[in-house]
Design a protein around this nucleic acid. Structure first.
Lengths: 237, 237
DNA sequence: CAGTGGTCTAGACCACTGG
DNA sequence: CAGTGGTCTAGACCACTGG
């Protein structure tokens, strides 16, 4: 594998930021300084910095400099980046803690969506760097879940484990207040704001194969949607 | 406003792609051709192409070329629907009640986004069938808003009134609790959950022309996002 | 093989920030 | 004002695709 210089520089800078070499909101060395430090051209330095900006780690202002971003976790829907990947780019380890794993009778909503009576239900907590950032419940038809182990669902994204090809998903995003159980798991006060997402995942033939509900504490999470065409702008107007 | 060459080129190429000059999946001219066509350096041409790749319009393969992206994922992703659109489809009348209309000095966030000191600020309440469902504040540069009247912004979506062509927008979606003033306007209890969206709307050259904040009561609103591609499914896993 | 995109250099001019 | 990032040029070498 050829070494890509701007990626090496980006990785090194990320390490320095994560190590706390620069304060949150603090300035990085100037591009000119970095050029000398890394022995690379300014274009290459900027390319590294832009990739870190893309990851939400740093930002810049013309005439001022590059500084450590003090952003929230952003889930950029349109760019299809995963929250875990963004976290990984910041050097934060993602972890799934399984709270509950078992076959149950579907409730009304699950039956309505998946069209079966018996389902595998998995409840879990997603953590990033040891901090809980999502409480998730996933349901899938019992026959599809028959071959899955508790260790499987802890180690892999659910949809990667299913013996079907995923064709798409529909996700709703709503606001709610933290219920006592979720508040405790997510380490936030009861009644604090949360984002609540419900997702229906389908196979390539359009059959629903997963239903999941995700609860995020509001102070850690926001969704980002890019609307590249004017038609998208009718959104809220 | 200075003309940014790579944005001009990107806008022109986007127009040619949208006009069907290149078949879906078809090759674009080579970078070398484009440098001659546009009289720009290869770096600038690539920057324009990269921005179109970012938008999901084109893609490339080394040694092969740039081609029109078959999987227009991002465009599909932008198909967000809202309660208002659904209401509109049911024949419920939408109404804008202007709370405040005036030219003010930009606050820090507005200045950061729009890059100007003087702005037109419009606060309004959106109603559907007489029920308030959104409290909205819109800022736009004073020169762009100079020709707008209070009646204009009550009668039309803001972006339709601007003397610029809209190129896209980026919207963040977050959860919060209703503040007293918003609670009263939206007829919900103080501290009840709300969705809070901030949107930056840009012209075709990528210049920000509108900043807006939208507050929706959670019980009336949810966002729906379709994720047609399997890659999109890694979103929260 | 000729042609393509991916990476990189060493310059340049400019707008902008802060003092 | 000196220093900063934003944009742009005209080169270069390389890995890769297809014929």
């Amino acid at each position: 594998m050829r070494e890509i210089r701007y990626r090496e520089i980006a990785a090194d800078l990320k390490g320095r930021v994560d190590a706390g070499e620069f304060a949150a909101g603090g300035l990085l060395p100037s591009e000119a300084d970095l050029t000398r430090t890394y022995g690379a051209s300014r274009v290459t330095i900027r390319r590294a910095l832009e990739s870190l900006r893309e990851a939400g780690l740093v930002d810049s202002r013309q005439g001022f400099g590059w500084f450590v971003a003090v952003d929230r976790v952003r889930q950029n829907l349109a760019q299809l980046s995963t929250i875990e990947r963004e976290l990984a780019e910041r050097g934060v380890t993602a972890e799934r803690q399984i709270l509950d794993f078992g076959f149950v009778t579907a409730n009304a909503r699950v039956r309505e969506v998946l069209g079966v009576e018996q389902v595998l239900r998995v409840r879990r907590l997603n953590l990033a760097g040891g901090v809980p950032f999502a409480r998730v419940t996933v349901w899938c038809p019992a026959d599809l879940g028959a071959s899955l182990s508790r260790a499987d669902v802890a180690a892999h994204p659910f949809y990667e484990l299913l013996p079907v090809t995923i064709g798409g998903a529909t996700q709703t995003i709503a606001a709610a207040l933290a219920e006592p159980a979720d508040a405790k798991l997510l380490e936030v006060p009861i009644g604090s704001p949360v984002l609540r997402c419900e997702r229906v995942t389908r196979d390539v033939d359009g059959n629903p194969v997963l239903l999941s509900v995700h609860v995020f504490p509001a102070h850690l999470t926001e969704f980002v949607v890019d609307l590249p065409s004017p038609t998208g702008l009718s959104l809220v107007e």
